[in-house]
Design a protein around this nucleic acid. Structure first.
Lengths: 118, 118
DNA sequence: AGCTTGTTCAACCAATTGGTTGACAACGAC
DNA sequence: GTCGTTGTCAACCAATTGGTTGAACAAGCT
C-alpha cells in the first residue's frame, strides 16, 4: 500500500466502514465495542480497522481501565486537503488560461499541437 | 475495495504513482507513453493505473488517431473535499464546545463521566 | 483467587492489488 | 500490403486486504 503518510491516510479512508467510524468519532470518543455495535462484523474486524486508522494517524488510543477509548485526530485530514486543493487549483488555473487563449483566438485559426507543455 | 464512488476516489489516490500522474496531468493532457516515461515500470502497469483513475472518474480518455490522450477530471476531487471538510468541521466544533465547557468549569470540580454523548 | 468484560494476537482463507511477460488490435507511414 | 508505434488484454505471481475463529491478555468485581 506504499508506506508514505499521505498514501496511508487515503487508503484508510478508502473503506466505507472506516469512513463511517471517523464520522461517528466526530461526535465524541468511543470504545471499540461501541464502534463495533452498528456493524455486522466481529469486534476483531473493527479492531483491525482501528489499527489501520491509527497507523494513518487519524485516531489515537488512550487507556481508561480495561477500556481503550478511541479519539479522532482531525488535523491529519489537513494533509489530504492540502494535496487535493493544490492540484485542483492548478488544474483550474490551467483551464482558465486555456479559456482565455480560445477566447482570444480568431474563429478561423486552425488549432495547432494542442497545448502541449503549456 | 467497496465499489462506492467515494471509496474509489480515495483508493485511486492511495498510491504515490497515481497521485504523481494526477499531478502531472494538471499541467496538461498526456498519452500513456508520456505518462509512463518517468517511472521504472512497464507501460502496461501504467495503463492499469490509468484504468483505476478512470474508474474513479478522475481521468477520461479521448481518441486521437492511435493515441489515447488522458485528461484530468478535477471536479471529482470536490467529492472528497466535501467529505473531508464536513467531518473536520464537525470535529473542530466539538472541540470548541468542549473548550468552552472546560473554561466555564470551576477549577475544583471533579470531572464526571467524561463527555459521553455530549 | 476466580469470573466477567473489553480488547488484541495468531492463524487461516478468499479476494484484490500492483507488478510482470507475451500476444494482439488499431492506426499511420512507407 | 507490411512495418513500427501506441495501447490494451490475458495469464500469471507474490504480497496485501478484510474477514473469520479461537486463544490470550488486562483490569475490575465478588
Amino acid at each position: 500500500m506504499a508506506a508514505d503518510p499521505l498514501s496511508r491516510v487515503f487508503a484508510a479512508l478508502a473503506d466505507p466502514t472506516r469512513r463511517d467510524m471517523v464520522a461517528r468519532l466526530t461526535a465524541g470518543d468511543a470504545t471499540v465495542n461501541e464502534l463495533a455495535a452498528p456493524y455486522s462484523v466481529t469486534v476483531q474486524a473493527v479492531s483491525k480497522h482501528l489499527k489501520v486508522l491509527a497507523e494513518a494517524g487519524l485516531v489515537s488510543r488512550t487507556r481508561d481501565a480495561q477500556r481503550r477509548p478511541v479519539h479522532l485526530e482531525a488535523e491529519v485530514l489537513d494533509l489530504m486537503t492540502a494535496w487535493i486543493e493544490r492540484y485542483r487549483r492548478e488544474a483550474e488555473e490551467r483551464y482558465r488560461r486555456l479559456d482565455r487563449v480560445l477566447a482570444a483566438m480568431p474563429d478561423d485559426v486552425e488549432p495547432v499541437a494542442p497545448t502541449e507543455g503549456m
